[in-house]
Design a protein around this nucleic acid. Structure first.
Lengths: 333, 333
DNA sequence: AGACTTCCCGCACAGGCGTGCAACACCTGG
DNA sequence: CCAGGTGTTGCACGCCTGTGCGGGAAGTCT
């Protein structure tokens, strides 16, 4: 079965196909009488303009790709949902590509998007090869990255270093002295920045940081990191900065249930992202808020500017994460 | 800037546009020599076939819509991600529409999908009006629903009633006697089925069920429900079946932290979905596993059958949730 | 060498649509 | 009654593709 076409509507309304087209084109010249006839016929047949053909004609598909690995997890899930909402409001059609983070998979995703003439690509994870940007550029397709600083592409980034430094200073001011950082081996650039800045700030004050890492950047990683830190029961940390909230949850659970530590009295914990779970009564996690709606809006703004001015220099939108104090660290001893 | 077109490739390769088209059409007749020339030129220009135009021509866009409200939350997030992956593997392009659940928003989403000639729509939440199905039918666009039983549409559904009955019987067999159900006021059909079946099974055994509800079906709802159940401290439940895992987490946190109950000794809890958080050490929730990958596959199978046979009777794929025993209820007292 | 088959290639059309252009109808003013 | 202006309509073209069809080149067989 085929979709209803303008031709069919025209025949039924007894007018030319142009009349139908004009009826559905804002600003075109149609008499009220024929518009009425056309609308009536369209209603009866259930017609809607074919945006694909329209897209072929004036070279704008309205499609925008969102590329993410494991888009169901943590902060990325919120970012994905926010992007979908913002894009739709703007009249775009968001395509969700759930992909691995290998280069091949990213390139396959891009092929698909370029094939469908997507007007832009928004990348939430993975590090595309240079050829990726080259191909996008050749086809005039803007690429916006979120959460990582690609010098050659527009991107939205959070003030990871500033926030991490702030976490270190807050711990120090509260009199904490035995520091740890819980991260992951497959760290994204954002997470690396957090680690580096936190370690630097603590060391600048004359203390050391034990770094523990799990495999990914999820709950299990926090569990693994916690058990590493527990190895020597005589030397437990009293302040842990976690690369993100999920890691913090895993770490808190282990530290409380297996090491018997009280949070925040024995152990202060700060996370990153402020996912909704951070407000759960069991965690009440002090963390840095990243607002997915704001980040999504900024990404779309970058995209709009790039479409308006394709040859401008790569642009950066900075978002400042604000610390949200809850019970896992109250800012004093 | 425009995308690279076959015309440009043809000129560069010194062949006709047809030759380019044939080079990228599997099974078409091209000599190795020209194919080589074309591929070379295409490589240089960064050309990819325009799937939009291809779609207009043979009337298949490869687009598939995923319609969901709050696709970042709980089980839906996993379902969304799984659908994206399965659809991509099948060569489709998944469109994620994050919409409200009012009829207007659903209809707007449908307009967008029909406008872009999406080959099918998969609905994860919300109850579309009859006109929705009518319009889809007129345009030959299959609609698959997940999680709710729409008698006139293909759908994937879990054995909610069977599982809920099983939960009741398990509580009974373990000697629990003071039952409660934690649900929500804005319940989906799936959640309603769980409530109804659980209450019926418990009452059939001669006991009663206190039903507590929050506003939505998330963590906060569990918190609200728990506080309702705590109102009379002399009459606390010893077994609660929760409409989903998120509700269970909220309820457990309140019951432990505010009522001082021990899980599972004082209070047994069973959830539904088996989201990853259910395995977190703090919860170790006994729950009914729904595999998002399986459900996504089934949905796509329905879709394939419908495309192959548009006029067949509405079809149903049933998925059986399996109970996963963890620590929140071990099946004995 | 000539006839016949095989293989490719290019032309032209189709599939939806938007839009410039010219024609046409209609109305107004003198 | 006629000139001129205004508003609407249909024709035809273009966007980018896949493909049937006819023709030409090349290869094979006698």
């Amino acid at each position: 079965m085929r979709f209803v076409s303008a031709e069919q509507v025209a025949r039924r309304a007894g007018v030319s196909r142009s009349a139908v087209s004009r009826t559905f084109t804002p600003g075109a010249s149609v008499s009220p009488a024929t518009r009425e006839k056309v609308m009536h016929a369209a209603q009866e047949l259930g017609y809607h303009v074919n945006d694909l053909a329209r897209g072929v004609l004036n070279n704008q598909s309205r499609l925008v790709g969102i590329v993410a690995t494991r888009p169901e997890v943590g902060f990325r899930a919120h970012l994905t949902a926010a992007l979908s909402k913002v894009l739709i409001k703007r009249g775009n059609v968001p395509i969700l590509i759930n992909t691995g983070q290998t280069e091949e998979e990213l390139v396959a995703a891009q092929k698909m998007l370029i094939g469908h003439r997507a007007e832009a690509t928004i990348i939430l994870s993975g590090s595309p090869p240079a050829s990726f940007f080259e191909l996008a550029r050749r086809n005039g397709q803007p690429v916006v990255m979120i959460g990582r600083s690609e010098p050659d592409a527009d991107h939205v980034r959070a003030g990871n270093s500033e926030a991490s430094q702030q976490a270190a200073l807050a711990f120090l001011a509260a009199g904490r002295r035995r520091f740890a950082f819980a991260g992951s081996h497959s760290a994204t650039p954002a997470i690396l920045e957090r680690e580096t800045a936190f370690v630097a700030a603590v060391e600048a004050a004359g203390f050391t940081v034990r770094v523990a890492r799990g495999r990914d950047s999820d709950y299990d990683s926090g569990v693994v990191a916690a058990r590493q830190l527990m190895a020597d029961r005589e030397d437990l940390p009293d302040a842990v900065f976690c690369a993100n909230d999920l890691i913090a949850f895993g770490l808190m659970d282990v530290m409380r249930l297996e090491a018997g530590l009280a949070v925040p009295d024995d152990l202060a914990v700060i996370g990153f992202d402020d996912v909704p779970e951070a407000a759960w009564l069991n965690y009440r996690l002090t963390t840095f808020r990243q607002d997915p709606d704001v980040m999504a809006r900024r990404a779309v703004e970058l995209l709009e500017r790039r479409l308006a001015n394709p040859d401008a220099e790569p642009d950066v939108e900075r978002v400042i994460p604000l610390i949200v104090y809850r019970d896992s660290f109250r800012g004093k001893m």
